[in-house]
Design a protein around this nucleic acid. Structure first.
Length: 250
DNA sequence: GTTGAGCGTT
């Protein structure tokens, strides 16, 4: 992307990464290249950008081939005014995959049980907050596949149970869960095509009826708001299922 | 069109 012509991360094991902070949001790798290349052999320059908007995040990574050159660049370019703003050049502490880095060089691959060292970056920017608010919740819950699998298993159990009694609520629930999982860019991308489609198929002016109908039907089936209704619906009142019903109702 | 502590992509 923001490289010189490569697609992925080159051989960073033998390179020294420099972190350039406080740069303008308009500064690109091409602008930093001549500055850093003057003090040494720059292998690659990468500027993290927003995947949605594509704007720079305000910092860049410059990889040198030799440590002495990187050190010199830090000493010479640190505090240099670029594009009307004073930049901060320092050695990177973490690698692309949260590897431990010493003097900009990766000294350790990446611990498979300690990759949360980057928790120190809260990312409290107004943009992230804005997007987070729109997405309701972020998908940074990727702690382990274990929990995810268990949760999914639980949903399947409910799915089967619900399907036995009524099959009209199952697709609705499944769809809702699938969408709510990770709608980071998919929703944004799909919404463009989904919006007109929904308007033509369901409602010419609103999509509310589609969702308003779901809870209405579920309420009729006695899904969760009224557990007692479930017993009278298809399953006789059995105190043995009571505790389980409560759990399922959650 | 905005913002400003920080640690990164195929």
């Amino acid at each position: 992307m923001s490289h010189f012509g490569r697609s992925g991360p080159p051989d960073i094991t033998d390179t020294y990464s420099l972190l350039v902070l406080n740069i303008t949001f308009r500064t690109s790798a091409d602008d930093l290249f001549p500055l850093f290349d003057k003090y040494g052999k720059v292998v690659d320059i990468f500027i993290p950008r927003d995947r949605r908007t594509g704007d720079s995040r305000g910092f860049a990574f410059v990889r040198y081939k030799y440590a002495d050159e990187a050190q010199k660049a830090v000493d010479r370019l640190d505090g240099r005014v670029v594009d009307g703003r004073e930049i901060t050049v320092q050695f990177a502490k973490y690698g692309p995959n949260a590897e431990k880095i010493q003097k900009g060089r990766i000294i350790e691959p990446v611990p498979r049980s300690r990759n949360r060292s980057r928790s120190r970056s809260p990312r409290r920017r107004y943009r992230d907050d804005h997007y987070r608010d729109r997405d309701h919740r972020r998908r940074s819950r990727s702690r382990s596949g274990e929990r995810y699998e268990r949760e999914r298993d639980r949903g399947k159990d409910r799915y089967s149970c619900r399907r036995s009694r009524s099959h009209n609520a199952s697709p609705d629930y499944s769809k809702g869960r699938g969408r709510g999982r990770y709608d980071d860019e998919r929703q944004s991308s799909s919404r463009s095509f989904d919006s007109p489609s929904s308007q033509r198929s369901l409602s010419p002016h609103k999509v509310s009826p589609a969702r308003g109908e779901s809870p209405n039907r579920r309420s009729h089936d006695g899904r969760s708001p009224t557990p007692r209704n479930a017993s009278s619906l298809g399953r006789p009142a059995t105190h043995t299922r009571s505790p389980r019903n409560s759990d399922v109702d959650e």
